[in-house]
Design a protein around this nucleic acid. Sequence first.
DNA 1: TAGGCCATCTGGTCCT
DNA 2: AGGACCAGATGGCCTA
Length: 178
Amino acid sequence: MPAEAASSGAAPESAPRERRRRRGRARARTEALLHTLKRSRRVKANDRERNRMHHLNAALDELRSVLPTFPDDTKLTKIETLRFAYNYIWALSETLRLAEQCLPPPPAFRGAAAPPSPGSDAGSWFSSASPSAPSLCASASAPSSPATSEDCAYAPAESLRAFRALPATSAGPGAVCR
DNA sequence: TAGGCCATCTGGTCCT
DNA sequence: AGGACCAGATGGCCTA
């Protein structure tokens, strides 16, 4: 039958070409699909990363809020906040250490019964093991002169005021820990 | 205008 | 496989 021959074998050479064309179209489609899939994953990852950084910044803001600053102070930068926090912790530890040397702990604090202290292990406030801030880096040199009578006059308020005068960026105990 | 700080994007690596 | 974390790149904004 001529009609049959026309339908089945009308273009014996074009069939492979058509198959190639179809395969090419299919591949382009899957590549486009892959691209959109990758793109949507990227967008989601960007979103998560943005969120993560926002949380990090929120934590940094919280840290800023507990550092002693004056209202008219300009906002500390991130690196300044971290260095300042390090110095601040160091200063507080020093204050505690000196206070410990000058004043014997009250009887109530000597035993197991520690006073309730906001958000911290109360025992550690009076523990003789000095807070590890100064030793966080081996080269940090904490003032190690023995306590004198002048040291006993080293009131926390005074020490904080003096500490506050330290530039958070360059001087202070944390400066050596970069 | 240079330099500092920051937010965001991106690809790589590790972990669950 | 997907999420978390990290570090480098990039561009915008601000200040000296």
